[in-house]
């Protein structure tokens, strides 16, 4: 069995990527299982999706604990405790990473050596070919298909299955073109082989859950307004940047920010809390003097 785990943020299309791979594998005659898992979070929050390809009926469910391939849509996920994309990777795992960095710039990721990390700027590929970030799903789904040894026609069949029927013919064509480019980009990379052996399960220690007093045992929170400990700044794809010389200190950005991620300094200049700003860009859009610009995150 081949186990592929996709990590992305809500809105990056990793559920679709997992389905493109699943459909491609299905067309290639594999027995397939794919499923997404998302918490309550929305756009920008970490999510993951799983695809399994096998020659025998698949008797696994839910999360993939030991992936053969991890696809990472966004490098910021590496440091995100809510994502932990490298969990369960071992020396036989491969990583496919969407990054602006060159492969040579990458350091080993946990147990995964540099030789098993394949990286490319799929965001740029997507933007060039389809002018849409939503196409990242196509690029990564197809690249993953190639890494697993599926043919271009099988990969394209997967893409065709999963593209929204609502897309215009032009957008469909652009996505197919992107699939071809992404497949080509991955063509130099070695093909991942199925593991020949099954690891024996590692025995875990089961512990007692003892009685705790009601001050502890109810799902209540006494640490009031502690949500900023949970940084949502890495949800951003673009960051608002203030050009103070254009700012008239009108308060509009401060009032509009749904997140309370913009404060005012002593002189009424806005201060963006980049730890928290989710990058909705309302402030950029609303600023009457265009004192904010949106800049793509480089991470």
């Amino acid at each position: 069995m081949l186990r592929i785990r996709f990590h992305g943020r809500g809105g990056q299309g990793m559920k679709t990527a997992s389905r493109i791979l699943g459909s491609a594998g299905f067309h290639a005659g594999w027995i397939v299982q794919d499923s997404p898992v998302y918490g309550a979070e929305r756009r920008g929050a970490p999510m993951s999706a799983f695809t399994r390809l096998a020659r025998e009926p698949i008797r696994e469910r839910g999360v993939i604990a030991s992936p053969d391939l991890v696809v990472i849509a966004d490098e910021t996920l590496l440091a995100d405790l809510a994502a932990q994309p490298l969990l369960g990777c071992d020396t036989r795992s491969t990583v496919l990473m969407n990054t602006r960095k060159q492969s040579a710039e990458l350091s080993p990721l946990g147990a995964v050596s540099r030789e098993a990390i394949f990286a490319a700027d799929f965001t740029a590929l997507a933007l060039e070919t389809t002018q849409s970030l939503a196409s990242l799903s196509v690029a990564l789904g197809v690249a993953a298909a190639r890494l697993l040894g599926l043919s271009l026609s099988e990969a394209l069949a997967g893409v065709t299955d999963e593209l929204s029927p609502h897309l215009s013919a032009e957008r469909q064509a652009k996505n197919v073109a992107l699939a071809q480019v992404a497949y080509a980009r991955a063509e130099g990379w070695p093909i991942i082989q199925e593991r020949q052996t099954t690891d024996s399960p590692t025995l875990v220690t089961l512990v007692e859950v003892a009685f705790d007093p009601p001050t502890v045992a109810a799902p209540s929170i006494y640490a009031i307004s502690n949500s900023p400990e949970r940084k949502t700044g890495n949800w951003r794809q673009f960051r608002p940047v203030l050009h103070a010389e254009l700012c008239t200190r009108c308060w509009i950005c401060f009032v509009r920010c749904p997140e309370a991620a913009i404060a005012l300094d002593a002189h009424d200049y806005p201060v963006v809390d980049y730890d928290q700003c989710k990058g909705c860009l309302l402030c950029v859009h609303e600023c009457p003097t265009h004192a904010f610009t949106a800049e793509q995150e480089v991470r």
Partner: peptide, 19 residues
């Protein structure tokens, strides 16, 4: 607008969608 309170009573870091 400038009579609106500066202090926040609902802080960031939640799971709600951006925007």
């Amino acid at each position: 607008l400038k009579q609106i309170a500066r202090e926040e009573f609902i802080l960031p870091g939640t799971s709600i969608c951006g925007g």
